[in-house]
């Protein structure tokens, strides 16, 4: 499978990365080289093989339904949440106006 300029532009839009024309033109052969190379995976017979889900045998731990049991995973820290925000006003993050 090879990608053309239009496809790469579509993928870049999906990934929200604005590509200039030169960048886009440069990216097409690079992606094609990589995609062409990974396609050798198609040779592998995977009949009856499950895709890997857990790297190391392990089961999902569930946590208790407690509020703010650990400050690192709890709420009540608005200042910390907003500390690095490019725009924060009145306790909110600010973004360019969205029309729904």
């Amino acid at each position: 499978m090879s990608v053309d300029t239009e496809t790469v532009a579509k993928i870049a839009a999906l990934a929200r990365i604005k590509l200039g024309e030169d960048e886009l033109a440069g990216m097409v052969p690079e992606l094609n080289a990589i995609l062409g190379w990974v396609e050798q995976l198609g040779e592998v017979d995977v009949t009856g093989i499950e895709p890997m889900t857990a790297v190391i045998e392990n089961t999902l731990r569930l946590r208790a339904d407690a509020i703010n049991a650990d400050p690192l995973t709890g709420g009540d820290r608005r200042d910390d949440i907003l500390a690095n925000a490019p725009v924060a006003e009145h306790g909110f993050f600010g973004v360019p106006k969205v029309i729904e």
Binding site: I67, N68, G75, D76, R78, G91
Partner: peptide
């Protein structure tokens, strides 16, 4: 995350680093 779910709180007060 361990942040609370109560309705009507002040903005961004019930937000963890994870959220």
């Amino acid at each position: 995350s361990g942040a609370a779910t109560e309705f009507g709180a002040e903005p961004n007060t019930q937000v963890s680093l994870i959220d």
